[in-house]
């Protein structure tokens, strides 16, 4: 007897075509009732577009938290030569005034309160006239309390990233990866992935994975892309970053 499993399948005559035809509503009032009535189609498409909209519009918003920073900080004001007076010969030097390298070469990231109080040392006499500074003085400087900054660009624990290697050896400007913050007056809202806890700046701001600026996303492929572009493919080896 022929084994049905191994025998070549014979397509029934016009099988697919008549199946698809059958999906369409017919006008001729034949006895055949198609499985998809118009109403059926409406439900199907409602489901389709509903999910589509959810996936593209609702989900990317719902996935991330929206947390304002504990206090506001005005980069532009601090870098204004007439007001903040933070100086430096190059853009990078200006950044390093606060976001400094420690003696051991590690990068301090967001400055600690001690950096702020180098200038804002007396809680009783603010340097400017803004309400935000007063609030900062009262809440943090007077009480010697660290500001619980939310950090946009912290790589996960499994990643070893050395700023000094990129800035001093690679001679990359800060803006290249972080964008130009020197002119921003407000800090962006911090958004963390509710599942993973990662900042949106790490996985990427665009849910579809497109990026326009370097600082839109900082995933492994982005590191590799730049290494390759700069002719340092050897740095794409696993253990360079995943120690």
């Amino acid at each position: 007897m022929e084994n049905p499993a191994t025998s070549p399948k014979k397509s029934s005559k016009g099988g697919w075509i008549s199946f698809l035809k059958g999906l369409l509503p017919t006008e001729n009032g034949s006895a055949f009732v198609p499985p998809f009535s118009l109403i059926g189609w409406i439900f199907l498409l409602a489901g389709f577009f509903g999910a589509f909209t959810f996936g593209w519009v609702v989900y990317p918003v719902a996935l991330y938290s929206r947390q304002p920073q504990p206090i506001s900080f005005n980069h532009a004001l601090h870098l204004d030569p007439d007001v903040g007076g933070i100086e430096g010969d190059t853009e990078t030097e200006k950044c390093l005034y606060c976001h400094e390298f420690r003696d051991d070469g590690t990068f301090s990231g967001i400055p600690k309160l001690a950096k702020c109080t180098e200038c804002h040392d007396d809680p009783e006499s603010p340097l400017g006239e803004t309400q935000q500074e007063k609030e900062f003085m009262e809440k943090y400087v007077a009480g010697q309390k660290e500001i619980p900054w939310l950090i946009y660009y912290r790589q996960p624990d499994c990643v070893y990233f050395s700023h000094i290697a990129h800035v001093k050896m690679g001679k990359i400007e800060c803006q290249t990866c972080h964008g130009d913050h020197s002119k921003t007056e407000k800090l962006p809202i911090y958004r963390a992935n509710l599942l993973t806890g990662y900042s949106i700046n790490i996985w990427g701001k665009n849910i579809a994975g497109y990026k326009t600026n370097t600082w839109d996303r900082m995933k492994m492929d982005d590191c590799a892309e730049c290494h390759t572009k700069k002719g340092h493919e050897e740095n794409n080896a696993c253990f360079v970053c995943h120690k």
Binding site: F43, L44, L45, A46, G47, F48, F49, G50, A51, F52, F54, G55, W56, Y59, P60, I207, A208, G209
Partner: peptide, 10 residues
């Protein structure tokens, strides 16, 4: 429809 639609989203 929903299942099909969700496949075309991220």
């Amino acid at each position: 429809g929903g299942a099909a639609g969700i496949q075309l989203t991220p």
